[in-house]
């Protein structure tokens, strides 16, 4: 092995990597927000009692989950171009990611919605809550709470998927790396650098989701505090 590692040749290109990182983060944020909305819509559609709503949703989910993302991306990119719709590669990438992740999160959220006991919904109805309130506070939010770990790991996978969009020439992290290695011929160093960056983004994202979960699901926190108070009470009595 006569390869001399030379990370200093990558260093001058840090602005490219930084703008690549920025684009990766932007795409991830957009795809996460809209992907969650799409997932909720898909899950609701799949659970619908109307066959003409649930069946197309089912076909959508199975098709998107069982074909490679790169094929979906090309389909959208070249397909839209061939009928005269020209959008930027970044916009197309975000749309493709939302469509793709919507199918996965749709299934996850559906499992969450299925896990809500019917009695809970009936109780909410008896209490006279409006149907929108029931959907949001009794059904959806507890459902998301139940499947939160699976949901967030899907979004981390989606962040990793942004790299595939470099194939339609978005200049995100992988695209930037490709350009740098083709001018410097320092592929090893460039790709190790971005691998480290990806690992860091993935960890940051996971940390963010954990924090967000603490913030969003107050009920869980309240329950935890309640049990702690009770425990303290019994101990006081016992003492």
């Amino acid at each position: 092995m006569s390869y001399g590692f030379d990370f200093s040749s990558v260093l001058p290109f840090w602005p490219d990597l930084l703008s690549g990182l920025y684009l990766t983060v932007v795409m991830t944020v957009f795809a996460t927000v809209f992907g969650l909305v799409a997932g909720i819509a898909v899950a609701t559609a799949r659970r619908s009692r109307v066959k003409s709503v649930s069946l197309p949703a089912g076909i959508y989910v199975e098709t998107l989950r069982n074909t490679p993302f790169i094929v979906q991306l090309f389909f959208l990119y070249f397909g839209l171009a061939s009928i005269g719709i020209h959008l930027s590669a970044v916009v197309i990438s975000i749309i493709a990611m939302v469509l793709n992740v919507g199918a996965y999160t749709g299934e996850i959220i559906r499992a969450g919605l299925d896990s809500i006991p019917a009695g809970q919904l009936e109780a909410a109805e008896c209490l006279g809550l409006s149907s929108t309130k029931i959907f949001f506070y009794v059904s959806l939010i507890p459902a998301i709470e139940n499947v939160y770990p699976a949901l967030t790991s899907q979004f981390v996978l989606m962040m990793l998927m942004t790299s595939v969009t470099s194939q339609i020439s978005t200049e995100e992290l992988s695209g930037a790396a490709y350009n740098i290695q083709s001018t410097t011929f320092r592929a090893m160093e460039v790709y190790i650098t971005i691998a480290v960056i990806y690992v860091l983004i993935a960890f940051a994202l996971k940390l963010l989701f954990v924090g967000l979960g603490r913030l969003l699901f107050r009920r869980k926190r309240a329950l935890r505090n309640l049990s702690r108070v009770r425990l303290a009470g019994t101990q006081a009595v016992a003492g």
């Binding site: 942004t162 595939v164 992988s174 592929a187 790709y191 691998a195 690992v199 960890f203």
Partner: peptide
């Protein structure tokens, strides 16, 4: 935690060297 595509690139362009 590293995209599969990046792993592929690392093998093909990097480790092959």
């Amino acid at each position: 935690n590293v995209p599969t595509l990046v792993q592929l690139m690392l093998w093909y362009f990097g480790i092959s060297n």
